[in-house]
Design a protein around this nucleic acid. Structure first.
Length: 855
DNA sequence: AGGTAGCTCTTATAGACAGCATGTC
DNA sequence: CTATAAGAGCTACCT
C-alpha cells in the first residue's frame, strides 16, 4: 500500500510521507489502515518494537483531526512525551498543533484545549480527567502507546482505568492501542472493542542467539565464531567483535562498525561492566572521536560533582558508558544522544534503557537474564516480554543490515534453556492488576469523586468494563476488594455512604485532585493532626527540656490510621496563633510576590518564631512524607539499622507520630528507612553538597533529584490539606520551599530569585546580602565578587530582583574592593554595611538552623 | 619478608508517575 | 527458603 492509497488522509500528508522516503507502508501499517485506523475504527496493533507503530498512530490522529476532532497520545514515560512531541511537530506545517502535558512540563503555556494533538503520560491524563479538563470531552481519537504496560502492577491500573473513563466520556471514541507482541493481544482488542492487527514483521531483520563457549548460535541455525580469548569475558569479546564489523557484509570502511548495548541486572554491574568495556572500545576510536569524547566527558563532569559523574566521564572518554536511574537526567540524555550519534560505542545499562527513548544498537547483549527480587526471594528470571523488549533494540535503521540480540550462557544446558525460555518462547499474556488493593484505593476514590459513579452498583458497573473484568469470570474478587476499599475510604473520611449512594467528602475531592494515594493522604493528615495535638509537649521537648522520651510516647495515637476528619474542638485553641498568621499569609504572599513583599515575609516568620521554635520541624515533615506509599523508600544497608535507630531516638520529638516499638512492631523497619530518606532531604535542605549526599546514602545524583521532586510534590499536597483542615500551614510551606531550593531557611527569599540557586544564594548571603532589598541596594562590586566575577550573571540577577540600574559595566574588577563606585539610589537607604535584615533582629535564622542540629 | 593465587565470607540487589506555578549553576 | 557477582579478608604457598 502506498501513502496515496490511505483513505481519509488530510491534504499534503501523503506527499510528505513520500518526501520522507516512504514509498510503501510496512505490512503491519497497511493492515492497520485496512482495519480502518484512518476511518476512525479502533485498532489494537500488537507488533514488534521499531516496526512503525508510531506511523499508525499518526495516520489515525491526523485523519481524525482532519475530520474536525482532537487526538490524545498517551505515553508511559515523561521522556517519551517530549520525544513524541518533537516527532509530531513535523505536522505543524500542515496546520496541526501539538502540545505536551506532563507533571513537570506543560507546552508553551498556551492552553491545551487549543491543540489538535496532545501528548501526555497516563497519570497526567488521569489527573486531567479528575480535575475536569473540559477539552477531554471533545476527544475523538486516543492512542495508548505501550499498552501492554497495563500489566504493570503499579502503573498499569491507571492506564486501564483512564482508558475506561475516556471511553465513557466520549462515546464513539476511537482507541488505537499500540502494544509489543504479547501472548493475548486478542483479549486486549476485545476489551477495547477494537480490530486486532498482529504481526511479527520487522523492517530490519533481527537475529537472536545465545553465546556459549566460542560462538554464537543463532535462531536461524547459523553460527558466528566469537572466541572469548584469555580474559574469559564473553561480553568484552562480543562488544569487540561487533566493533570489528562483519566480514560477511562486504565491509565498506568504518561504517561497518557496530555498537553494542549490554543489559545487566544492577546499577553496580552496569558501572563495573562499563569500566571494563572502556578498554575494549578505546582501541577502536579515531583521533577525531577521541577529541569529541573528551569534550563530552567534561560536559558530563559539569552536570554534577558526584562521584558518578567522574566515573561516567572516564568511561565516556574511552567510548563506553553506563546508564541507570541513578544518573542525573542530563547524564542520561548526553549518553543516549552520543550513542545515537555513534560516538559512544557501547552502553552497559539496567532495564531503564529498554523501556525508554529510542536507542537502537547493532548488537544487543542480554548478559543478565535474572534479577534479584525481594518478594520472589531470590534471582527471578526476567519476563519473556522484557527480554524481547531489550532484544528489540537491536538493529539501527539505515545503518545496520540486521540487528543481533545475544544472550549469554555459561554452559550447554543454559544455552538450551535460554533458547527455550526466551528465543522460541511467546511472550506472556498481559494480565490486569486492577484488583490489587492499592490500585483500587486510588481509583475508586477518583471514580466516585469525579462523578463516574454515584452508587456502589454504578461503581461496579464502571469497573466491569475494565480489562480486569474481561479477563476474569470471577467478578466476586473485584467486588470483594472494592468493598474493602470502600470501607477504608469511608473510615478515613474520604467517602460517605448513605443508603446506596456514594459521595466524596470535601477532603476526598481534594485528595483525588491532588493525585494522592488515599493512604498517603491519611498518613499526612494523621501526622499533621498529631502535631497539632502534641505541639506544646513537643516544643518543650525540643527547646531542651529533657522531656523527649516521655513526650514521644503520648497516648494520642492509638491504633493505626485515625479518621482523617479529626475532631476540631481540642486542637482548636492550640493553633489559634497559626490561624492569624496563616490567614494573613494566604492573602498576601501568593497573590503578588513582588519585590516589595519581602518585609511581609520577614514579619510573618517573626510571628511564627515568637512562641518558640517552628513546629513541626522540617525533619518531622520530611519524615512524614517519606513514610507514605507515594515515596519510594531507600534501602537500609548493613549498619544503617543501628545508625538510624540512634538518630530516631535522638530526634524522636521531631517525628510526627508515635514511633513504633523497636522490638514488637514490624513497622519499625519502615519507620527507619523513612527516616533515612528524611535525613537525605534534610541534608539537601541544609545545603550539604551533592557528592557528600550521594556518598552518605549510597545513591546517585538522579536519586537525589527524584527524592526531592517527590518530597516537593507531597509537601505541596500536605500544604493544601493542612489549609483545608485548618492545620498549621506555614511550617509545611517552609519545609517545601527548603527542599525545592535546597537551602536553609535564611536563604529562602534569595533562592526564590530567578538565576539564584542554592550555591549563589549562599555566596550572596556570606557577602552580607541577606534579602532582596539588600540585593537591590547592595554595592555592585560586592555582588560581583560574591558571584565570582560573572558580570552577565550578576546583571541578570539584579534585573530579576527588580533593581533600577542592573548594569555592571562601570564596576571595577572583582578583586579591587571598591565601595565608592556602585550603590544605586536604593543603596543609599540601607548601605551594604547595614543589611536590611539586621533590622529584624528577632527574625533569627540561626533559630531554625540550631533546631536542625538539635541532638 | 613480601607477594599473590585462590579460597571463603560478606554484602548488595531495576524502575519513576503525580499538584501548582514558573524558571538551575 | 530459593541466586549471583564483586569485593574484602584471609590462608597457603611461592619467590
Amino acid at each position: 500500500m502506498q501513502p496515496e492509497e490511505v483513505p481519509e488522509l488530510p491534504e499534503g500528508v501523503a506527499a510528505h510521507l513520500r518526501g520522507e522516503g516512504i514509498e510503501e507502508l510496512y505490512p503491519p501499517q497497511a493492515a492497520a489502515v485496512e482495519a480502518g485506523v484512518t476511518r476512525g475504527e479502533s485498532v489494537v496493533a500488537s507488533v514488534p518494537t521499531a516496526s512503525g507503530k508510531t506511523l499508525v498512530a499518526e495516520l489515525a490522529m491526523l485523519s481524525s483531526v482532519a475530520r474536525g476532532g482532537t487526538a490524545l497520545y498517551i505515553v508511559p514515560l515523561r521522556a517519551l512525551a517530549s520525544e513524541k512531541k518533537t516527532e509530531f511537530e513535523r505536522w505543524e506545517e500542515y496546520g496541526f498543533d501539538v502540545g505536551v502535558s506532563t507533571g513537570n512540563y506543560e507546552s508553551d503555556g498556551e492552553w491545551l484545549a487549543s491543540r489538535d494533538i496532545v501528548v501526555a503520560t497516563s497519570e497526567k491524563v488521569d489527573s486531567l480527567v479528575r480535575n475536569g479538563a473540559a477539552w477531554i470531552d471533545d476527544l475523538t481519537c486516543v492512542v495508548a502507546d505501550e499498552v501492554h504496560l497495563v500489566d504493570d502492577s503499579h502503573r498499569g491500573p491507571t492506564l486501564e482505568v483512564t482508558l475506561g473513563k475516556l471511553r465513557t466520556l466520549n462515546p464513539g471514541l476511537q482507541v488505537v492501542a499500540l502494544s509489543a507482541t504479547v501472548g493475548n493481544a486478542d483479549v486486549v482488542a476485545e476489551w477495547l472493542d477494537a480490530e486486532l492487527v498482529e504481526s511479527d514483521w520487522r523492517p530490519i531483520d533481527l537475529r537472536m542467539g545465545v553465546h556459549y563457549g566460542n560462538a554464537i548460535s543463532f535462531d536461524d541455525g547459523s553460527q558466528r565464531e566469537v572466541p572469548v580469548g584469555s580474559g574469559g569475558r564473553p561480553t568484552a569479546a562480543l562488544v569487540d567483535d561487533a566493533l570489528d564489523g562483519d566480514p560477511d557484509e562486504d565491509a565498506d570502511g568504518a561504517d561497518d562498525q557496530g555498537s553494542s548495548l549490554v543489559f545487566v541486572n544492577s546499577r553496580r554491574n552496569a558501572e563495573a561492566s562499563a569500566k571494563r568495556l572502556r578498554d575494549v572500545t578505546d582501541p577502536h576510536l579515531t583521533d577525531d572521536e577521541r577529541g569529541r569524547l573528551a569534550e563530552l566527558a567534561s560536559e558530563i563532569r559539569d552536570v554534577s560533582d558526584a562521584d558518578t559523574s567522574d566515573t561516567l566521564a572516564s568511561c565516556v572518554a574511552k567510548g563506553a558508558a553506563f546508564h541507570h536511574a541513578g544518573l542525573a537526567s542530563e547524564h542520561r540524555s548526553l549518553v543516549e544522544d552520543a550513542f545515537r550519534d555513534r560516538l559512544v560505542k557501547c552502553i552497559s545499562a539496567t532495564p531503564t534503557l529498554a523501556a525508554g527513548v529510542n536507542t537502537p544498537s547493532r548488537r544487543v547483549i542480554v548478559r543478565d537474564w535474572r534479577r534479584y527480587d525481594g518478594e520472589f526471594g531470590g534471582m527471578k528470571p526476567l519476563d519473556v516480554l522484557e527480554v524481547h523488549q531489550m532484544m528489540g533494540r537491536a538493529g539501527r535503521p539505515g545503518l545496520d543490515p540486521y540487528g543481533e540480540a545475544v544472550l549469554l550462557a555459561k554452559n550447554a544446558e543454559t544455552r538450551d534453556e535460554l533458547f527455550e525460555r526466551y528465543i522460541w518462547a511467546d511472550p506472556e499474556p498481559v494480565r490486569s492488576k486492577l484488583a490489587a488493593e492499592p490500585a483500587l484505593r486510588t481509583h475508586v476514590l477518583a471514580t466516585v469523586a469525579s462523578g463516574f459513579a454515584h452508587t456502589r452498583a454504578e461503581l461496579l458497573e464502571f469497573l466491569d468494563q475494565t480489562l480486569y473484568a474481561t479477563q476474569t469470570d470471577d467478578s466476586g474478587r473485584l467486588e470483594h476488594v472494592t468493598d474493602d476499599v470502600l470501607a477504608y475510604l469511608e473510615r478515613n473520611g474520604f467517602l460517605e455512604r448513605e443508603d446506596d449512594s456514594l459521595t466524596a467528602t470535601s477532603v476526598g475531592h481534594t485528595v483525588s485532585r491532588l493525585y494522592l494515594d488515599p493512604m498517603t493522604a491519611a498518613e499526612i493528615i494523621d501526622g499533621l493532626e498529631w502535631a497539632e495535638a502534641n505541639r506544646g509537649e513537643m516544643v518543650r521537648a525540643l527547646s531542651g527540656e529533657d522531656a523527649a522520651s516521655d513526650a514521644a510516647s503520648t497516648p494520642s495515637s492509638d491504633a493505626a490510621p485515625t479518621p482523617a476528619s479529626g475532631d476540631p474542638t481540642e486542637a482548636g485553641f492550640q493553633r489559634a496563633s497559626e490561624l492569624a498568621s496563616g490567614a494573613g499569609d494566604e492573602n498576601g504572599t501568593d497573590a503578588d510576590e513582588t519585590a516589595d513583599e519581602d518585609e511581609t515575609d520577614a514579619d510573618e516568620t517573626t510571628d511564627e518564631n515568637l512562641d518558640g521554635p517552628t513546629y513541626p520541624t522540617a525533619l518531622g515533615l520530611f519524615h512524614l512524607v517519606s513514610r507514605t506509599p507515594d515515596m519510594y523508600q531507600l534501602y537500609l544497608k548493613s549498619g544503617d539499622r543501628e545508625t538510624y535507630t540512634e538518630i530516631c531516638y535522638e530526634r524522636e520529638a521531631e517525628l510526627l507520630g508515635r514511633t513504633p516499638s523497636e522490638y514488637e512492631d514490624v513497622r519499625f523497619e519502615e519507620w527507619l528507612s523513612a527516616l533515612k530518606t528524611a535525613r537525605l532531604l534534610e541534608d539537601w535542605a541544609d545545603e550539604v553538597d551533592e557528592d557528600r549526599i550521594t556518598e552518605r546514602y549510597g545513591v546517585g545524583p538522579g536519586d537525589i533529584r527524584g527524592k526531592v521532586e517527590t518530597a516537593e510534590w507531597l509537601l505541596g499536597a500536605a500544604e493544601r490539606l493542612a489549609g483545608e483542615l485548618d492545620l498549621s500551614v506555614v511550617p509545611v510551606r517552609e519545609a517545601k520551599k527548603r527542599v525545592e531550593y535546597g537551602v536553609r531557611e535564611e536563604l529562602l527569599t534569595l533562592a526564590g530569585i530567578r538565576g539564584v540557586g542554592r550555591k549563589r544564594a549562599r555566596r550572596l548571603y556570606e557577602a552580607g546580602i541577606e534579602t532582596r532589598a539588600d540585593l537591590r541596594g547592595a554595592d555592585k562590586s560586592v555582588v560581583l565578587r560574591a558571584l565570582r566575577g560573572r558580570r552577565k550573571t550578576a546583571e541578570g540577577i539584579l534585573e530579576n530582583v527588580g533593581r533600577q540600574d542592573p548594569s555592571m559595566e562601570d564596576v571595577a574588577k572583582a578583586d579591587s574592593a571598591n565601595t565608592e563606585r556602585a550603590g544605586g539610589p536604593a543603596g543609599q537607604d540601607e548601605g551594604p554595611s547595614q543589611p536590611a535584615s539586621t533590622r529584624a533582629g528577632e527574625d533569627d535564622p540561626e533559630e531554625q538552623a540550631s533546631l536542625g542540629d538539635f541532638g
